Computed example of a mutant assay.
Amino acid sequence: MIDDLGSEVADAVQWYWETRDGQGAAQRDSEDSTRGRRAEVLGGQQMDGFAGLVEDILRDVGVPADSIKHDYHATLPGYYRHEKEWDTAVVYDDELLAVVEYKSQASSFGNNLNNRAEEAIGNNTDILQAYEEGVFEPSPAPWVGYLMLMADNDDSRSVPGVREPNFDVDDEFKDATYVDRMELLCIRMVRQRLVNNAAFILSDDEVGMEGEYWEPNEELQFRRFARSLTAHVEGQIDIQDSASGSQ
């Protein structure tokens, strides 16, 4: 599966736009809809096509289905707060191997994008600190992933002003569109190791209904995201299985 992800991502993108447009129920009833079957298992929310795709990718490399948790079942303790409900968590043999968040942004880019940034930075800082403090012992360092699907339209391509009453804003944010700002968030979280990998996907409500999407940054492609996730998880499962077999 991981060598042929283009059509799989297209299905998840199409599911997002169809569900946002109120057509998700029809897709859940379609026997030919892979995105519909995946999302139905998870409840059929807008980003569940991606959650189902990640689950399929993990199962394809040998992760048992009952080790892949979603939503309420993916609730984990934190360090700065008591708990957090992740979108997906991989818990294998009582060890935390990975967590993933799936986010989207299709309107109200101003305040909502700031909220997304604060949320992502806070969530990732919290779980990494929880790991460092031994909350998940004897788990290895968990793989942390962040996926953003953003609408590519006139609003998201507009350039908002910046306020500088006291200090200058980072030059990279000046003259940056909302799309640019989200791309900066994703790549900086990767570079600062707040996440192991991030995926940044653009689409719009017209061609997105046909599954069309584009990825503006090679470092943030879904294929890299998936390969990084499976390499980490598969490696940890092999280590644990080998350790069990030697006892």
Rank of each mutant, 00 (worst) to 15 (best):
I2N: 15
D4P: 02
A12V: 04
V13I: 08
Q14W: 05
Q14S: 10
Q14T: 01
E18R: 15
R20Y: 13
A25D: 11
S33M: 01
E40A: 06
D48S: 15
L53F: 10
V54I: 12
E55G: 15
D56N: 05
I57E: 14
G62R: 09
V63N: 03
A65F: 12
D66W: 10
K69T: 00
D71P: 01
T75G: 11
L76I: 02
P77F: 07
Y79C: 09
R81A: 00
R81S: 06
K84R: 14
W86D: 05
D87M: 07
A89P: 05
V90G: 08
V91C: 01
V91G: 02
Y92R: 10
L96T: 08
A98F: 05
Y102N: 04
Y102M: 01
Q105G: 00
G110H: 14
L113G: 06
L113C: 00
N115Q: 14
E119D: 09
T125F: 14
L128D: 09
A130F: 11
F136D: 02
G145W: 01
L147R: 09
L147I: 15
M150V: 07
A151F: 00
D152M: 12
D155F: 04
S156V: 09
R157P: 10
S158M: 07
R163P: 04
R163V: 12
P165Q: 04
N166G: 11
D168K: 11
V169M: 08
F173V: 12
D175G: 02
M182G: 08
M182T: 05
E183S: 09
V190S: 05
R193Q: 07
N197K: 15
A199G: 11
F200T: 08
L202W: 08
D205I: 10
E206G: 10
M209Q: 15
G211I: 00
E212D: 06
E212W: 02
E215R: 13
N217V: 01
E218S: 14
R223H: 13
R223P: 03
R224K: 15
S228A: 14
L229P: 01
L229G: 10
T230P: 03
A231V: 03
A231K: 12
V233M: 10
Q236R: 15
I237R: 15
I237T: 09
I239R: 13
Q240M: 12
D241G: 02
A243F: 13
